[in-house]
Design a protein around this nucleic acid. Structure first.
Ligand SMILES: [Mn+2]
Ligand SMILES: [Mn+2]
Ligand SMILES: [Zn+2]
Ligand SMILES: [Zn+2]
Lengths: 148, 148
DNA sequence: TTCCTGATTAGGAATTATTCTTAATTAGGA
DNA sequence: TCCTAATTAAGAATAATTCCTAATCAGGAA
C-alpha cells in the first residue's frame, strides 16, 4: 500500500463521516493537493488540475478547498492581502514570510507550542489555536541584494 | 501641551524627514487615526472622516494609510481575507482574533518578544518582526452561546 | 429498469476591496 | 507672477472570491 493509497483512504473516510460525497472533482483536487508540499493558492490548484481535468471550474476548486478546510484536511491561511493560500500541512506549525519575495516557509517550534500563554490572554476568551508569523528577508533575497 | 499636540508634532517631523508634505488631508486622516484605539479599516476612516471633510476621497485614505504604514506611523494588518485593518498601536504586540465575531484584541507578551527563536529559523533568513495570532472564541461570543 | 430527489457542478455574472488613470488643484520657489 | 512637482478627487479598472442557475449526477424507491 503506497502512501498515496493511505491518504486516499483518509479522504474517503473523512468525506463519509461528514456525509459528503467523494466526487471525482473532490478526489482530483485532493490528489493535486497531495503533490504540493507547500502553500498553493486556489488559482494554482485550478490551473494545474485543468491540464488533466479540462472541465473543472474555478468555483468548484474554491468550494472544495473551503470544504476541506472545514473538515480539517487543509488549512486556509491569511498571510497576505493578495490571494488566499492553503496549507497542505495540518500539523501544528508556524511560518516565515519573506517581505521581498513573499516566500512562505514552515517553522516548527514545539517548545513554543507547549508554552503557557500569559494570564491576561485567558481573560479574553477561549484560545483554540496559536499561529506565529515571522517576517524578514529570506536567504535567496539576501544573496541577490549582495550580488546585485 | 496636550497629548494630541504631541502627536501632531510627531507627524510633522516624520513627514518632514520623509520629504512628504503634511497636506490637510493627511493631517485629518492622522487625527482620525488618533481617535481610534483599535484596528480600523480604510473604509471606516473614510466614512468617519467624510462627516467633517466631505470631499475626501477613499483613494486618498488608502494612499495615505499606505504612506503612514511605510513611515511606521501605523501598521497594516493581514489578519483576515476580508478588508485590511490598520493598527494604530505600533508598539510590539500580538493579537487575539475571535473566529465568531472577528473581534481583534491586543496582546502584550514581552517575555515572548525577548525569547530566542529556534536555530532552524535563523537558517531561513534574517528575521525582522514576530507576530503571534491567537484564534479562539471571545467572552462575548461564549456568553451569547450559553444564553442563546 | 425507470423515475424521483437532493447534491454537486460548470459557466458565467456579480460583488467588492483595492488600485489605477487622469485632469484639476495646490503650494513653494525662481 | 509663472513654473513645476506633488497631491488630490472622481470614477474607471482590476482581480480575488462568491453567487446564481440550469444541467448533470448518483442513489433509492417503485
Ligand atoms: Mn505551512
Ligand atoms: Mn493591535
Ligand atoms: Zn525572499
Ligand atoms: Zn467573538
Amino acid at each position: 500500500m503506497t502512501s498515496q493509497d493511505n491518504e486516499l483512504d483518509k479522504i474517503r473516510k473523512l468525506c463519509d463521516q461528514a456525509g459528503m460525497k467523494l466526487t471525482p472533482q473532490r478526489l482530483e483536487i485532493f490528489k493535486e493537493l497531495l503533490s504540493h508540499e507547500d502553500h498553493p493558492s486556489a488559482e494554482l490548484i485550478f490551473t494545474k488540475l485543468r491540464e488533466r481535468l479540462p472541465t473543472i471550474s474555478l468555483d468548484t476548486v474554491y468550494r472544495t478547498l473551503a470544504s476541506f478546510d472545514e473538515l480539517g484536511i487543509i488549512k486556509k491561511l491569511n498571510i497576505s492581502n493578495a490571494r488566499t493560500l492553503f496549507d497542505t500541512n495540518i500539523e501544528q506549525h508556524h511560518h516565515f514570510i519573506c517581505t521581498k519575495c513573499k516566500r512562505v516557509e514552515d517553522i516548527h517550534w514545539p517548545d513554543f507550542d507547549k508554552a503557557n500563554l500569559p494570564e491576561s490572554v485567558s481573560a479574553l476568551g477561549s484560545i483554540q489555536t496559536r499561529h506565529l508569523e515571522l517576517h524578514g528577508i529570506c536567504n535567496q533575497c539576501l544573496n541577490k541584494k549582495n550580488k546585485g
